[in-house]
Simulated assay, not measured.
Amino acid sequence: MRWFIVIAVLFPLGAALAEEGRGMQIARDAEARFADYADQRGEATMVIRTADGDEARRELRARSMETDDGSRSLTIIQHPPDVAGTALLTHSHSQRPDEQWLYLPALSRVKRIAAGNRAGAFMGSEFSYADFTAQPVEKFDVTLLREDTLDGESAYVLERVPEDPDTAVYSRQVAWLDQAHYRTLRVEYFNKAGQHLKTLEASDFQEYPNGQWRAGQLTMTNQLTGGTSTLRWRDITFDNGFTRRDFSVDALERAR
């Protein structure tokens, strides 16, 4: 995940096409701003809360790197002990379907995650496996819906509709990007039935010396159940010297 998101026709055709073109350009500019690095790593605490107030915590670390055709990422659970060593490997591609594998230490087994299972919850959280994949512009039709204000920030509101709806987990996404830095502030996810399923809120942004902005906190809320999952990031570093071997399927079993 790059930290790792149908409306009524209200305008004449010409205006609609113009907004679609502008939306795609904004999305491409945002992607370019957040891709000027070789790799990154970080640690996080995941807090999972049900609507009834039950709470569970996971400690994890993650790393990712850019590649010629997309990106690769590896997320490793470190705590609690009963799930420590569980690892999720993702190969995101710009032009072809993404690939994911899950290592289960209790079974000493690597399991490939089928495309049809990527809507499943990662470690019991509101984040799905699909939420850990990159979202390259090439896989979406992007339209600028409007300009808005969110928490005092001037923002572009973009609709992202997958070009291949049959393999996508969400039917569409609506994202708020701040106009100053093109940071993703909020994403609303809609399921195949058109329901508003989840909302991602990003906050506590920090700018790093290489000009990259990253959110210190990501909170995913399930609009249907009221459950929430929050990722609190720390110790983020860039250009660590990772190679493709660090993101191979063989590397899953060595992940600790």
Rank of each mutant, 00 (worst) to 15 (best):
R183Q: 14
V249S: 06
L197R: 09
P165T: 03
F4L: 13
E253T: 15
R214Q: 06
I236H: 00
F242P: 05
A27T: 12
G194S: 06
S73V: 04
R256Y: 03
A38I: 02
E126Y: 01
W176S: 10
A114S: 11
V249W: 01
F205W: 07
M1Y: 06
R61D: 05
V187I: 13
A255G: 08
Q223M: 13
G124H: 08
Q223K: 10
M24D: 14
P81S: 10
V6P: 13
D52G: 07
G23E: 10
T86N: 03
I113E: 07
D250L: 15
E31I: 03
G226N: 05
D151V: 01
Q223T: 08
V157D: 13
P105L: 06
N191K: 04
D239T: 03
V6T: 05
G53P: 09
F122H: 02
A27V: 12
D39T: 01
P209R: 13
Y182R: 14
F205I: 06
V169S: 10
L102Q: 11
D36A: 09
G23V: 14
L104F: 01
Q179D: 15
A27N: 04
L144D: 11
A35Y: 01
D69C: 05
N117H: 11
P97K: 08
D52N: 13
D29L: 13
A180W: 02
D235A: 15
R118Q: 08
I113N: 06
D151K: 12
T199I: 08
R186W: 07
Q40G: 05
M1I: 02
T243K: 02
F4K: 05
V83G: 05
V249E: 14
P162G: 09
H91A: 13
A115D: 12
A175D: 14
I77F: 05
P97S: 12
K139H: 05
G53N: 06
P105V: 02
R254P: 00
Q195K: 12
